[in-house]
Nucleic acid binder design. Structure first.
Lengths: 176, 176
DNA sequence: GTCTTCAGTTCATTCAACGAACCTAGGAGT
DNA sequence: ACTCCTAGGTTCGTTGAATGAACTGAAGAC
């Protein structure tokens, strides 16, 4: 976000937070990371983000410890970007924004994916808990994302992979 | 945020949400509104935001129904900006970002205000609930914000008013 | 009639976002 | 050996938003 020299209120932790995750595109990158997107070209195709911006965001997020870059193939050498603990801790904030958007900012044609507790299959409550189990805050690793019924608009590999229910944080296989 | 024509993923409700509340400064304006800031000049002094940007943000937020503009004084005519129901529904997302920031993005000198359930005085849990009462999600109107101990750095009227504990959403009196 | 406050608007400058083109490393096919 | 292909970037000219200082206008107050 750092235009000029960033928010001048350097004593405020919200300003610091937004300096990092409040930049344009950053939250969408993080959401895709929760969905299991890990590769540069998958972020690129799914978000339709300028390459230069994606490079900048991935570097900022890895530098600040939200994402980590890991070698997952030796020949040819390929790295992937995965959420760290610090990054996974953003789930409550991301989910809250998601829920607010579904209620207050979705247009007529908006996709409404939904999120279910993998242990019982129940849809998550708006506060991120499971209404049938006694789990107040379901961790992202225990959440399954389900596609919106009847959505087939986008045709990039990530959107196609998300047509099937998928566990959050698990690598999304885009070449099947 | 709308650079060029905004995020191209118009079918996604998170993208729509960020198009509205994800712009630079917007979340800080909304946080101040929860703190009880209502007047143009108070936002201006507390956030140290360029006037033109503040004007644009306030217009966008009122146009989209997050804030409402209300006449609170007839002579001289003065309007104030207050959160609507739609705006107050952003509290879980804002609180989650706040908590993430306090844990993962606060520097050595960062102010750590804290939030307490007004009914019992207990500090809120990181998930926004009250640990002693059985309240899972304390609504903002029942929350008291407490100043960080030993913080006296900023000297604008809003910062001074926040040196005393204060109920969220209640108008902050800045001329006492 | 002048001063002050509040709430803006205007404007030149700076800097990030955009998008297309280019670049590099490492296979794969022939 | 030469060419093609893919993944993951970088470079660069153009567009447009953020910045900060100056200006405007309305309504009391002195």
């Amino acid at each position: 976000m750092a235009l000029k020299q960033g928010y001048s209120m350097q004593d405020c932790s919200l300003a610091r937070t937004l300096e990092l995750v409040g930049e344009r595109w950053t939250m969408l990158v993080i959401r895709d990371a929760f969905y299991g997107v890990r590769r540069y070209s998958d972020f690129l195709a799914h978000l339709d983000i300028p390459r230069a911006v994606l490079s900048t965001r991935l570097r900022t997020l890895t530098d600040s410890g939200v994402l980590a870059r890991q070698r997952y193939e030796v020949s040819p050498p390929r790295d992937e970007y995965v959420l760290t603990d610090k990054g996974r801790a953003l789930w409550p904030a991301l989910f809250a924004l998601l829920m607010w958007g579904q209620v207050h900012a979705s247009g007529a044609t908006a996709v409404r994916r939904y999120y279910a507790h993998a242990a019982c299959g129940e849809r998550l409550a708006p506060d991120g808990g499971c209404p049938s189990c006694e789990v107040a805050a379901v961790p992202p690793a225990d959440i399954e994302i389900h596609p919106a019924p009847g959505s087939g608009a986008r045709q990039d590999p990530v959107s196609r992979a998300l047509m099937r229910p998928h566990r959050l944080l698990e690598r999304l296989e885009t070449d099947a």
